[in-house]
Design a protein around this nucleic acid. Structure first.
Lengths: 106, 106
DNA sequence: CGACTAATTGGCTAAAATACCAAATAGTCA
DNA sequence: TGACTATTTGGTATTTTAGCCAATTAGTCG
């Protein structure tokens, strides 16, 4: 494959890869309508804070979220809202999968 | 996190994970408007056919593509077109990233 | 049937991702 | 300044993913 095309798809894949983890999808959902601090997310997720922080840095690195420090806390918010549209599509895939499975059984 | 919610996000992540690879993104693009056989994709990608086949099986497993065997060849097509909408959003993220980087430099 | 072609599967190794703990940073406040 | 809190960073063990080769499966055609 043409190296220029290759790096184009690599850049896209990096963004999608950032979303490709249950915890990170959860985070995106949670900060979609309102920013949250790491401590809040940590509570909701129930993992080590360092783990949550690293997930957030993956998302930030990909440009999906942005952060702002206020006092001791760092607040994260969704930087590119169109990502939420994706979720509807994914649900559609899952629904289609379930239907196909049902059809295969009958 | 509540185990039911957890498995919900796991299911979503599986679909997104299937997309989270440059080669697989390329494949989705290529079969978006017209089905292609493995041999065509192999030529375009320039990897071992077994590699391409495994990428395709990841996509199929996630429910993103469907396949149909005709004669010796197996043709793959996009099963859920709404995934294409995602690409526009991703391009938006990349553009925003580039702009942010430019702004940081000046 | 036997040679041939398209595709998938199994096996293996190398590279990347994940999650925890411990240590370092940065900001607050007495 | 020193104690305290929120977050990030470094290190490491474990798991997952990727890609190639070799072997197998499935369909075609003489």
């Amino acid at each position: 494959m043409d190296p220029q095309l290759q790096s184009r798809y690599q850049a896209r894949a990096k963004v999608i890869k950032a979303l490709a983890h249950p915890t990170r999808l959860f985070i995106v959902d949670q900060i979609a309508d309102q920013e949250k601090c790491v401590c809040e997310l940590k509570e909701m997720i129930g993992a080590d804070m360092s783990t949550v922080s690293k997930h957030l840095s993956v998302l930030k690195d990909a440009g999906v979220v942005s952060d702002e420090k206020r006092g001791l806390m760092v607040f994260y918010r969704l930087r590119v809202p169109c990502i939420l549209n994706l979720f509807g599509c994914i649900e559609g895939v899952l629904k289609a999968n379930a239907e196909a499975q049902l059809a295969a059984m009958k």
